[in-house]
Design a protein around this nucleic acid. Structure first.
Lengths: 218, 218
DNA sequence: ATTATTTTTTAAGTATACTTAAATTTTTTA
DNA sequence: TAAAAAATTTAAGTATACTTAAAAAATAAT
């Protein structure tokens, strides 16, 4: 299946999540930057391939097969975002753009290797769920902010909820990386500060930081 | 420029390295798995784009612009191979197949990030040179086998010249990974053995291993 | 409820990257 | 060196993924 088809199916899936009426050809066309005519055209073709149900003038509905394809692409996109975010010092915007391309040229095997390397994360750095290889999605987010973490426990970094460059620079310097492991050595409750050990470092963070660092219990 | 064009230009570049006569449309066609007619067709199109010089019945010759494009694709291919080889436990065959796809969907920025992460290697795990961002290639290979390394010096692993799964398993378990750093702590010259420290490990290797592990001096 | 606006669809056409079949040119070999 | 074989080119045609323009249907507004 082509890149155009994958993107089409993905657009329907994402729009549908947002609003069922949002999957009419015109909305998909706008999202993909193609003409309405092209979207109608493609919809008919994909209906013939059993990827979606097409009825004139109606919203497009993915079939199970189409949903599975969309989830597979979304999985690869979010795994790439997570992986590149962990590996390289790049802006989230740049990372998104790379993932948008790489998602279509990634075998299931490589996706699995990336997932394995990251410890099979259930959410990407934005907090969006990563479907598993069978297309299953974890809906409830069990991540907690570091400010709510429990003394003595070990966690994996699930999200860094910020766009601030200074914050990311600080994180990079202190091994605070998506998917890294840390242990909460002390919660200074009165002072709203948290002491963590990460790699060979021990760091005390104030509330400004602990509120935007989300972690999963190990 | 499309994937088809990138692959076409790359095929000419690689065939030309091997034999100048090897870049006639038919040979390129065979390499790409397309018909001779398609190759002639494409050759004319690319001549119009100033990527190659086309003369009827003659071998195809890349222009500077075409060579630059080919080198850029080759660079990305080899960087991906190097990167995936380092990061994941995958067969070289699988890695090649992934790189063949990813090479066309990789920005110059991401390529540079990968190169930086690997310490700007000049050769990939097969020993093929990795062009730099300007398309320059290092021709002479300065890597040496571990058996010829000098006591006390620190090296970066440049190649693992083997297809043997057991060897790779052993390497994986002992941090002997492409681009990792090691120090030669002792050469047991009489016994043809080499003691290295890599990460927190100390390993004594016999000649079977030191002859196929190639390193670059740091 | 009728008109105006917007959206969707149909129809016709384009660029890319191929295909097969036949014609032409080159290369090989006897 | 002339005929046979192989390669290249030309020509005609196909599938994909679009485009614009016009027609048809649905939605919104008065």
């Amino acid at each position: 299946m082509s890149i155009a088809i994958e993107n089409f199916v993905k657009a329907i899936y994402k729009n549908d999540k947002h609003d069922t009426q949002d999957t009419k050809p015109g909305n998909i066309a706008k999202k993909l930057g193609i003409s309405n005519a092209a979207a109608t055209d493609m919809a008919k073709k994909l209906a013939a391939k059993d990827l979606l149900n097409y009825e004139k003038y109606q919203a497009l509905k993915l079939t199970d097969k189409g949903t599975k394809m969309a989830l597979n692409v979304v999985r690869k996109h979010r795994l790439w975002e997570a992986f590149l975010f962990k590996m390289f010092d790049m802006s989230l915007h740049d990372i998104h753009r790379e993932a948008e391309l790489l998602e279509h040229q990634t075998s299931d095997l490589l996706a699995e290797k990336i997932s394995e390397y990251l410890g099979h994360p259930k959410f990407d750095p934005h907090g969006d769920p990563i479907p598993n290889a069978d297309g299953e999605i974890t809906t409830e987010d069990t991540s907690i902010s570091l400010s709510d973490a429990i003394e003595g426990k070990t966690y994996t970094i699930a999200r860094l909820m910020s766009d601030d460059k200074e914050f990311f620079d600080f994180c990079a310097q202190n091994q605070i990386k998506y998917r890294n492991t840390l242990t909460v050595s002390k919660q200074f409750i009165a002072n709203k500060m948290t002491q963590i050990s990460i790699g060979s470092n021990t760091i005390v963070l104030n509330e400004d930081f602990t509120k935007i660092i989300y972690v999963d219990e190990n």
